[in-house]
């Protein structure tokens, strides 16, 4: 029911924006106020979360090692899988962020007759994750043509490449198809695969459904529901938003406000959700630490400050009691005069 509830929430959001934007004067709420609020919550929340993470001490390397550590000279170190210098860690991080190497290791476990447990490599998650993330990245970059005036020259190259099949007019984008395919896979996986279904929560389903809604409304607006979708009015609003002088000149179709409202929801939801893996991937200690615990001393930052206490000092402090108890002391009590 967790996924059904996600759909329900997104449908409610669509209805709210679809009807709300039709009320006179509410266009500024959905088109100006909410986007500003959303970007503030997104950026502020993102920074807050990262700072909170940075406040947590990481007292010793907890790197996930996947290869031979640096050891004796004649044992070959696996520099990418078990880095012990900063540059090796940087290389590992870049490859992790750009190519999702940890997902490449994904395995599928099955119980067969016997009972016998088998594991086999399963690359689908990796393939569709790459597809999803790169489609999303290209879509975001492509949208910048509506915010940047004049649009930079390389924008045309992205547009050309993404619409290279020249299907229909406006040109069908490849990324529109690939992001939908990837979302369907990522969602289907959580429902069909029993192990993943068991651990899936509403905060796994909701962002997928929300992004699915964003992609669908965007595709509908571009290719199918073009009534009152005047790209000039939309660009005027978008450029207005980023130059702090937003204007909604003419009537823009409800589908635009629905799309924008869902995006605003995504931005507001972002810092409180698992989507924070965008920032978190940079801060994952299992990836970004050096495996150098045998070469460098790591001091626990919350250790109490214990001052050294020598035996001479100890005896000075307790000499009287020691003498009383008959314990031998190195330095006798001073002879009392009198």
């Amino acid at each position: 029911m967790k996924y059904a509830f996600s759909f329900l929430v997104v449908i409610v959001l669509i209805v709210v924006a679809g009807l709300g934007s039709q009320i006179q004067g509410m266009q500024y709420v959905f088109g100006v106020a909410l986007p500003y609020l959303a970007i503030l919550v997104f950026a502020g929340g993102f920074i807050y979360r990262v700072v909170q993470w940075a406040k947590s001490p990481v007292p010793f390397p907890i790197q996930t090692t996947c290869g031979q550590a640096a050891s004796l000279d004649f044992i070959k170190q696996n520099k990418l899988e078990c880095p012990n210098t900063t540059s090796e860690v940087v290389a590992r991080m870049i490859l992790e962020i750009v190519t999702f190497r940890s997902l490449f290791r994904n395995t599928k476990s099955e119980i067969h007759e016997g009972p016998q447990l088998t594991y086999e490599s399963s690359k689908w998650l990796w393939v569709f994750s790459l597809m999803f993330h790169y489609s999303f990245l290209l879509i975001i970059i492509r949208h910048m043509r509506l915010f940047l005036d004049p649009a930079p020259f390389w924008m045309a190259w992205i547009e050309f490449g993404d619409g290279i099949f020249q299907v229909g007019a406006p040109n069908a984008y490849i990324t529109d198809a690939t992001i939908l395919m990837a979302i369907v896979y990522l969602f289907g996986r959580r429902i069909i695969n029993r192990h993943v279904k068991y651990i899936s929560l509403i905060n796994d389903f909701f962002p997928l459904v929300l992004i699915f809604g964003i992609a669908c409304t965007g595709i509908l607006m571009r290719y199918f529901l073009r009534t009152d979708v005047d790209i000039l009015a939309i660009k005027r609003l978008a450029v207005g938003l980023v130059t702090f002088s937003p204007v909604i000149g003419v009537k823009i179709g409800a589908i635009f406000y629905i799309h924008l409202f869902l995006v605003s929801t995504l931005l507001i939801y972002f810092p409180f959700s698992k989507l924070m893996h965008m920032g978190g991937v940079f801060l994952s200690p299992t990836r970004n630490l050096k495996n150098n615990s045998r070469a460098v001393r790591h001091i626990n930052p919350w250790n109490p400050d214990i001052k050294p206490h020598s035996y001479a000092g100890y005896e000075d402090e307790f000499r009287e009691f020691m003498v009383d108890a008959g314990i031998p002391v190195e330095k006798e009590l001073p002879v009392e005069k009198g």
Binding site: F46, V50, F147, L148, P150, P152, K235, G240, T243, G279
Partner: peptide, 22 residues
């Protein structure tokens, strides 16, 4: 974090607060 803020603000920096005419 500075890089993050710059990326988020990039459309604002690019346009330089001037909304060109439609």
């Amino acid at each position: 974090l500075i890089i993050f803020v710059l990326i988020v603000m990039s459309p604002v920096l690019y346009n330089g607060l001037k909304a060109g005419s439609v």
